[in-house]
Design a protein around this nucleic acid. Structure first.
Length: 420
DNA sequence: GCGGATCAC
DNA sequence: TATGGTGATCCGC
């Protein structure tokens, strides 16, 4: 490689991935926007020069380097591999996985349409038909009119305004959302008493029993349930019906047979698979995988690098096989509880310690309300460069008071360290 | 057990 | 001018 030619290549490649990264994790998810390339350019332009931009650039560079290391690792791992033999072994595993496919359960994934925005519309009908975003600082959701401009949840308000100058911004009203969420969840529960909420606006249901008991098809059940939600809350809900929890895209029932499911998966972007985020999308793309169909094509590489890519998971994804067990999270299964806050500026050490005490007090309140406790206390702190650090300490006894959380924890020591 | 990363919502 | 909060999991020490 000529000195001078490589950096050029790197920097142009870096720009493309960086511009995409800056657009945020939920960009390009729904194809509502007119011109995603132009939108991404505007976002990148608005971000340029900020510390946030610099941090994203740093992370993008680190990821690119990681990918280059993995590519090298791949070349080394593939040397001397008996491709036919590995293919045969993987194909054998596919046969085994296919034999375990269970089409007996009717799983429904329900998702409220633009939930927070829809609730705001109920309280303020003036907003109907207008582009608006919910949330100050960072948006929690955007109306469909705003989405046409590329406005997305997780996007800072000032960038959303650049994309859509007429955008109206309204504040979050979390108590309203909680109230409406409870109403909606109660409707869902009538169709599956064991349904599993996934956040405030989503849930998984197993309606097998309900449809048998009422002599209804899955589609009829879901139709009825969606009508009930709308009648009781004026909110609309989309649903995907499948033999497992990997929802089809949008409102849709997939036929309950192996061939149809595999055909559906074939062109599905790997990014749609739960658990494959922006990073894994790039890692998989680097070995030629963009769709779930590509998994089969590249099965030998995945198999040889099983530890990095997870062969079994990807083969199941290729086949469209996923968990079909729906159960609510039990209280005892809770692993952690926390509180965090972002400050625009925090002042001196005394101010920082005071804020830490306030957060510890808030956490104590949350913990005592439900009788939660734990042995490991973790401090997470973010610098104004957006770099995030954690420091944790495990005690030989359970802690729960704010004094313990604050004083007995490593928090104070870390802040001390940062200031000295 | 610790710290960094990734992911979903 | 300016980019969130909560909880879970995995990997490599």
């Amino acid at each position: 490689m000529e000195p001078g030619s490589e950096p050029q290549l790197d920097s142009s490649q870096e720009t493309e991935t960086l511009v995409k990264r800056l657009a945020g994790p939920s960009s390009g998810k729904a194809g509502l926007a007119l011109d995603q390339t132009e939108i991404n350019r505007i976002i990148a332009e608005a971000s340029k020069g900020s510390k946030f931009y610099d941090n994203e650039k740093r992370k993008d560079k680190e990821l690119t380097e990681r990918i280059n290391r993995i590519k090298k690792e791949k070349d080394e791992s593939m040397r001397g591999v008996d491709i036919r033999k590995v293919e045969a072994a993987v194909d054998q595993l596919l046969v085994q996985l296919e034999a375990q496919r269970d089409l007996s359960q009717i799983i429904v994934h329900v998702d409220m349409d633009a939930f927070f925005a829809s609730v705001e519309l109920l309280y303020n009908p003036e907003l109907a038909g207008k582009p608006f975003g919910v949330g100050r600082g960072v948006l929690t959701t955007a109306s469909y009119e705003a989405r046409k401009y590329g406005v997305r949840s997780g996007m800072p308000g000032f960038i959303a305004k650049k994309l859509c100058p007429d955008l109206i911004l309204v504040s979050n009203n979390f108590s309203r959302y909680a109230e409406m969420s409870a109403k909606v969840m109660n409707v869902f529960r009538r169709y599956d008493s064991n349904m599993c909420p996934a956040g405030s606006d989503e849930a998984y249901l197993n309606i097998t029993e309900y449809s048998v008991m009422h002599g209804l098809t899955a589609e009829a059940c879901v139709q009825e349930m969606r009508k009930a939600v709308h009648a009781e809350t004026q909110l609309s809900v989309s649903a995907g019906i499948a033999p497992n929890k990997n929802k089809p895209n949008g409102q849709f029932q997939i036929p309950f047979d192996s061939a149809s499911i595999k055909a559906f998966m074939h062109h599905l972007s790997i990014r749609k698979v739960p658990g494959i985020g922006r990073v894994n999308e790039r890692l998989l793309e680097s070995i030629g995988i963009k769709t779930c169909g590509d998994i089969y094509t590249h099965r030998v590489v995945i198999s040889v690098m099983d530890k990095r890519f997870g062969l079994k998971f990807l083969l199941q994804t290729h086949l469209g096989i996923a968990s079909n067990i729906v159960e609510p999270h039990l209280r005892e299964e809770r692993k952690s509880i926390g509180a965090e806050r972002t400050f625009s500026s925090l002042g001196d050490k005394e101010k920082v310690l005071q804020k830490l005490q306030e957060i510890a007090a808030e956490l104590e309140k949350d913990m005592s309300r439900n009788g939660w406790t734990g042995r490991t206390v973790t401090l997470k702190y973010k610098l104004d460069t957006y770099q995030v650090f954690t420091r944790a300490k495990t005690f030989d006894r359970y802690v729960f008071t704010k004094e313990e959380l604050y004083l007995v924890s490593p928090l104070a020591a870390c802040v001390q360290y940062y200031y000295e």
